[in-house]
């Protein structure tokens, strides 16, 4: 098999536990939250690096986000990726999945040589796993979502095991292809400080570099809008500790369960 050129889409997200809702303005308070690479994307990077070990080739990271995402992409370079590209421009801000997948597809086309695009299953800050399919559609190529394992058939097609409801299936698709990697299917490797010391610089592209009508990008290009935002409340739990012998506890449990049914 010929070496593979893989692009991994990675997103910078605020750490979920540090994001709060401002009760007065009913908007998200992201300012206080620290950022991290979207954890599911680490699984995609790990899968890409594993494929490169087996087949040779290159792994490039691609992200759309604010300028301060660049140092986080260095983390991916320190894990072993070869190149990193950041699409960063005010015009790209506030994008929902339609313009996000468009911008990423244009970024992928601009990188040029590629066989495979890997994405995480979903971004932890709200969107839920729709961008990879969108990228595949803009690029007009085949897709495998929720992939747990990737390999190649003797005829060069990509073989993927993917999740379906209540089971799994094994599919084959031709390259080029876009794949979303099922969350937690592997253990992302640590970064290597030796690489870290002298990693390649991150290439930064603006909206103009993508050659798309700016009206199709960012907030302006987004068909959906967020209305209200509020803090989720889970039911208050009683946290009542039961005393007694196992029999006494079981009697109480049976009583409480019956009351609920």
């Amino acid at each position: 098999m010929k070496p593979l050129d893989i692009i991994v889409c990675v997103k910078l997200v605020p750490k979920p536990e540090e994001v709060t809702v401002n009760a007065e303005t009913r908007t998200l308070d992201r300012a206080k939250a620290r950022s991290a690479l979207n954890p599911p994307d680490m699984n995609a990077i790990e899968m890409a690096l594993g494929l490169r070990e087996r087949h040779g080739g290159t792994v490039s990271l691609l992200s759309m986000g604010p300028p301060f995402a660049a140092p986080y992409l260095q983390v991916g370079l320190a894990m072993g990726a070869d190149h990193a590209y950041l699409l960063s421009d005010r015009l790209l801000g506030g994008a929902d999945t339609l313009p996000t997948s468009l911008a990423l597809a244009k970024g992928i086309a601009k990188i040029g040589e590629w066989d495979l695009v890997l994405c995480g299953e979903e971004s932890s800050d709200g969107a839920t796993g729709q961008v990879p399919q969108g990228i595949a559609e803009w690029l007009g190529c085949s897709q495998i979502t929720y992939a747990m394992d990737l390999s190649f058939l003797p005829d060069g097609r990509l073989r993927g095991e993917r999740e379906i409801r209540g089971g799994h299936e094994v599919v084959a698709v031709p390259l080029p292809a876009v794949v979303s990697v099922k969350l937690a299917v592997n253990e992302p490797r640590f970064m290597d400080m030796e690489r870290r010391r002298n990693p390649e610089a991150v290439t930064i592209w603006s909206a103009a570099d993508l050659g798309v009508d700016p009206k199709w990008l960012g907030f302006e290009g987004s068909p959906t809008v967020v209305g209200a935002v509020w803090q989720a409340k889970s039911p208050e739990r009683q946290r009542q500790f039961l005393d007694g012998t196992p029999q006494e506890k079981a009697r109480l449990l049976a009583e409480q369960i019956r009351r609920m049914l």
Binding site: T97, L102, G134, Q143, T145, I164, R165, P223, T224
Partner: peptide
């Protein structure tokens, strides 16, 4: 479901519309 999302994400872009996931 896995296949419902696989389809929805693809279809939304083909139809050039918004999708709430």
């Amino acid at each position: 479901t896995p296949n419902g999302r696989d389809l929805a994400g693809r279809l939304a872009v083909r139809l050039r519309t918004g999708l709430t996931a």
